[in-house]
């Protein structure tokens, strides 16, 4: 469905996307993850024909993105990371406006809009002004908007940002439904856990570069060794950090006032050595446990905080 090859975009001298290559299969949900400023939005805008790449190419369903923007626009439903709403239109008028902009004949629009409102659970708001909707509803309305022309590929830029947990789950359910309808979806987020359940594939991007890319299983497997030790103390946090990072040459990070996290791949002997060191130094330990690798850890490991 989508192929990206050596895609780059620079703003002046600043390289926002750096020779990015990846591909997305038909029917996949591709999670595009990276810290703030990694270049997710920039990449998605290029795919949505809103930006020209500085170099490199991308194909959607075999069409070159920068050569035939018109055909691409018909294939792609792009949802930016903001709502764009007209405050003087009602919900159905809003959808009607965009359907008409995609040149859908008036006869079909009525049905499409009803279907979409049903899918998004917004039927009761049909007559409401767009401005009066809650954030979650607006988000769903925007999702409906990028579906009016029945695109094969959905490009969703942080569709769940700013939503409460319930609304997040709702959006997730809708996306699953869309996947069942055969759509290919690219979805960006800077929260990896948000995507683990939903996505089939993941691409982790940092500072414009892809640091890991593949199916969710693959990525989890590849980083299986990426485990960590969680250390909880009653006090003397700074001493504990000093011992681990300076005396033992490891790199622990402070999670909060009482909690340390230590990325760790070693065996049990080494674990024991660390523990002994801490105890001998008189650190008031509460717990010292190996944590199961989760995607959040992988993410923290893969992206080292180069940007910002």
């Amino acid at each position: 469905m989508l192929q990206v090859e050596e895609l780059s975009k620079s703003y002046g001298k600043f390289l926002a996307v750096d020779r990015l290559s990846f591909s997305v299969e038909d029917g996949a949900i591709f999670g595009f993850v990276g810290p703030n400023g990694a270049g997710k939005t920039t990449t998605m805008k290029i795919l949505g024909t809103l930006l020209r790449p500085s170099s490199g190419k991308a194909w959607i369903a075999g069409e070159d993105v920068s050569q035939n923007p018109r055909r691409i626009r018909q294939l792609v439903g792009y949802m930016p990371d903001f709502f764009g709403v007209y405050d003087d239109l009602k919900v159905d008028e809003y959808l009607d406006f965009y359907s008409a902009s995609y040149r859908i004949p008036a006869r079909q629009r009525e049905k499409i809009i009803s279907d979409l409102l049903e899918l998004m659970d917004l039927e009761h708001k049909r007559e409401a002004y767009v401005d009066s909707l809650s954030r979650g509803m607006k988000q769903r309305l925007c999702l409906a908007r990028c579906l009016v022309h029945d695109p094969a590929l959905l490009i969703l830029d942080e569709p769940a940002s700013g939503l409460d947990p319930r609304a997040r789950v709702e959006v997730r359910e809708i996306l699953k439904e869309l996947k069942n309808m055969g759509k290919t979806i690219i979805i960006s987020s800077h929260i990896l856990s948000e995507l683990t359940e939903l996505c089939t594939h993941l691409g982790i991007i940092e500072a414009g570069k892809m640091v890991a890319c593949g199916s969710v299983d693959e990525i989890v497997h590849r980083s299986q060794s990426a485990q960590s030790i969680e250390i909880r103390v009653l006090g003397q946090m700074d001493e504990a950090l000093f011992i681990i990072n300076n005396n033992l040459g490891l790199s622990a990070i402070k999670l909060d006032e009482q909690m340390l996290e230590l990325p760790f791949n070693g065996n049990e002997e080494e674990m024991n050595r660390i523990l002994t060191h801490l105890v001998q130094a008189g650190i008031p330990l509460v717990s010292f446990a190996q944590s199961q690798s989760n995607l959040e850890n992988i993410f923290m490991q893969l992206t080292k905080g180069v940007v910002q």
Partner: peptide
């Protein structure tokens, strides 16, 4: 300013 401009450009207009 209303951030609707990109949305318009995305359509077939």
């Amino acid at each position: 300013e209303r951030q609707t401009f990109d949305l318009l450009l995305c359509t077939r207009l």
